[in-house]
Design a protein around this nucleic acid. Structure first.
Length: 630
RNA sequence: GCCGCCGUGGCUUAGCCUGGCAGAGCGACUGAUUCGUAAUCAGUAGGUCGUGGGUUCAAUUCCCACCGGCGGCUCCA
């Protein structure tokens, strides 16, 4: 059975001429009209004859499902032979149509156009994305109901067909590749969640993501109603965390030889090279009109760097050649329903590194090194291998030529990874990986990624001169060592929410904690010494000098996830030490308290943050003079 | 873009179904308290009930539109 569903403002028909297969009808069926109707064009097929009842039942499910999504109350059943080239007998078709009508009448206002007539009809389609759907319903047992019901939006048909050519596998570290059906997901909960999210698109969530509450309560970031959605404001603590993460990624990139550059955030939509690129993609960019020019805000740093590469004189001896830009911002005009907290933004900060490589051999070597780097970068940021799942995607040709290389990638992370393989190359790359973070609501979001681009060097006419003096196009690797910086913060917050939920104590890595040590002087007479300790510690220290009880101030420090809380009273003053609560070794209701000298605490913190970027405290040291942002 | 839920002092929210003076906790401010490890006590101020229309003698409450948030669908270079 083939059906075509149109969500219409109205549908009206009028019988014109009888055909030889016409059913008998009475006068009132000669005309029909329904407003606000889901119109269902139906062709009953030969294959339905083996089990017409099942065909009716499956079709009913589909219609009801769509009608409920659209909140449609009126249904027009409209026989439409042209949907299929293999029609059933008229007798079966009429029976099926009548059964459908009867079954739907309980819940809906139903009209049925008569079978076997030439009819004039008029329909006004609403035109929204779900307003045109087609379904193939089959009674053949060998096809699963899910595959049979595979949704396909008519206008997107070609795209959907391309997507259908994805082959999915799980690759184990030992090199064994299995289909999803064969792989035993037991013990691989996150991998299963990622698979479900990626492939089945299964979602069971109906609440605000936990990091949204945390980003506000911890005064990291917030919505800005005065801007466009997905453009956030960052409070001092959030700005500091972002700044540290940004600095860190740039430092790591510099270590591997990337040159930092800066390029414009807006580009001419009619620039010859860019135009070709843009035309391939739907309008997802912010556009600006200025001085008779049409400009768009960049959605990645590729343009600026590629245009720069185009003008450069590059020798084969300069390769691999790396450049990085940290975009503040990249803009993507995501659809309104897609923008959520810090997970998906319309303006986001992204390190975008590009490597020009001599040939595939060099590109693959770089690819592997950058893969290793991404793992290490995320680890330092507080996101470990256990927090994300690896997806590796490639073309079949690439795989056939480089099986051992792919297996090595799975071996490095020492856990099963998801594989997506395409028969043909649809995108600009032949190989890519992403690390996908799995959050508290089982949603997956890509963090680090590296891609081998075989297309853009030619498009942007980027060349290097080889040893024979000939101009050659290099391969280009795209790499974001961390993914969007905001998304790292999202990941850290979600991770700590999950830690709290499972009975742990949440905290950020010490190098990212806005306050590293909070000093709590017990009474007024201890405040002066507290001020001296700040200088001795030499890290981000603040003093809770508010007129509150000790209990209250301890609690507040805990709610801010402060790694070290130092209490200072008569006892400590006498002995010249501090009573320090060490958050990383505490359990809920069981704080780990240690007496230590100020310089021991200082040394301990220096160990925690060794080799990582540092910035001074982003807020007034004395809490009594500190404003509230939220 | 489509569908659904939500929007009440800075924050969290009660009240809305069944129209009739808008209530609380936290925070802020003032005062008392100078305190030993997850919320000290008392008082004061603070509200265009998201915005705009409509219905009504009367709208935070009912209806419509818009804006914003969240979720789902779609999308994700």
């Amino acid at each position: 059975m083939q059906i075509l569903l149109i969500h219409s403002d109205y549908i009206a028909y009028e019988v014109k001429k009888e055909t030889p297969v016409a059913e008998k009808i009475d006068e009132q069926m000669r005309f029909g009209r329904l407003d606000e109707a889901l119109t269902v064009f139906i062709a009953v097929e030969k294959s339905d004859e083996s089990d017409p009842e099942k065909a009716v039942a499956s079709t009913l499910d589909e219609i009801k499902n769509v009608a409920s999504q659209l909140k449609a109350q009126n249904i027009m059943l409209y026989p439409y032979a042209h949907l299929s080239s293999s029609l059933s007998s008229p007798k079966v078709a009429i029976a099926v149509l009548k059964n459908l009508e009867t079954a739907l009448k309980d819940e809906f206002t139903v009209k049925r156009a008569p079978f076997g007539f030439y009819k004039a009809f008029e329909i006004k389609c609403k035109g929204h994305p779900l307003s045109e759907l087609s379904r193939t319903i089959t009674v053949d047992e060998t096809i699963t109901p899910k595959a049979a019901a595979k949704e396909e939006i008519v206008s997107e048909a070609i795209k959907a067909e391309e997507k259908a050519k994805s082959y999915w596998y799980v690759l184990k570290p030992d090199g064994q590749m299995q289909t999803f059906e064969d792989f035993n997901f037991t013990g691989y909960d996150n991998l299963k969640k990622f698979k479900n999210y990626e492939v089945s698109k299964s979602r069971e969530v109906d609440r605000t993501p936990p990091h949204v509450e945390l980003m506000r309560r911890l005064e990291i970031a917030d919505y800005e109603p005065g801007s466009d959605s997905g453009n956030m404001r960052f409070y001092p603590k959030g700005r500091m965390i972002k700044s540290l993460l940004e600095t860190y990624v740039l430092e790591r990139s510099a270590e591997v030889g990337a040159m930092e550059v800066e390029t414009p955030i807006m580009y001419d939509m009619n620039h010859v090279t860019l135009k070709k690129y843009l035309d391939r993609f739907p309008a997802r960019q912010y556009s600006i009109e200025a001085d008779k020019k049409s400009l768009f805000l960049r959605f990645a740093a590729c343009f600026g760097q590629f245009l720069m590469n185009h003008d450069m004189t590059i020798s084969y001896r300069d390769l691999p050649l790396k450049m990085i830009e940290l975009t503040r911002y990249s803009f993507r005009k995501e659809q309104r329903g897609e923008v959520v907290g810090l997970r998906r933004l319309r303006a986001f900060t992204m390190p975008d590194m590009h490597t020009l490589a001599l040939d595939m051999e060099q590109a693959m070597l770089e690819f592997k090194q950058q893969y290793d780097m991404c793992i290490s970068v995320l680890k330092d940021m507080g996101i470990g291998l256990e927090d994300y799942e690896v997806a590796i995607r490639f073309t079949r040709d690439f795989y056939e030529a480089n099986k051992a290389f792919i297996i090595e990638l799975a071996r490095i992370v020492d856990k099963p990874v998801i594989i997506e393989m395409w028969d043909q190359r649809f995108f600009y790359f032949v190989l890519k990986f992403e690390f996908n973070y799995i959050d508290a609501l089982d949603k997956a979001s890509a963090l680090s990624t590296v891609q081998i681009d075989v297309e853009n060097a030619e498009r942007y006419d980027i060349n290097y001169i080889n040893e024979h003096g000939n101009a050659k196009h290099p391969l280009i690797l795209h790499c974001s060592p961390s993914g969007a910086i905001e998304r790292i913060i999202y990941g850290l917050l979600e991770k700590n929410y999950m830690i709290t939920r499972s009975g742990g104590v949440p905290m950020l890595p010490v190098w990212l904690s806005p306050t590293q040590v909070r000093v709590i002087p017990i009474a007024e007479r201890h405040r002066e010494t507290a001020g001296e300790i700040v200088h001795m510690l030499g890290c981000r220290v603040d003093i809770d000098d508010r007129d509150e009880t000790v209990g209250k101030r301890i609690r507040d420090a805990g709610r801010e996830w402060i790694p070290y809380v130092a209490v200072l009273g008569d006892e400590e003053l006498a002995k010249g030490e501090l009573t320090v609560t060490i958050r990383s070794q505490s359990e809920p209701k069981k704080p780990k308290k240690v007496k230590m000298k100020a310089w021991d605490l200082s040394a301990r913190i220096q160990t925690d943050i060794a080799g990582l970027p540092y910035k001074s405290i982003p807020l007034p040291v004395y809490l009594s003079t500190r404003p509230k942002f939220v």
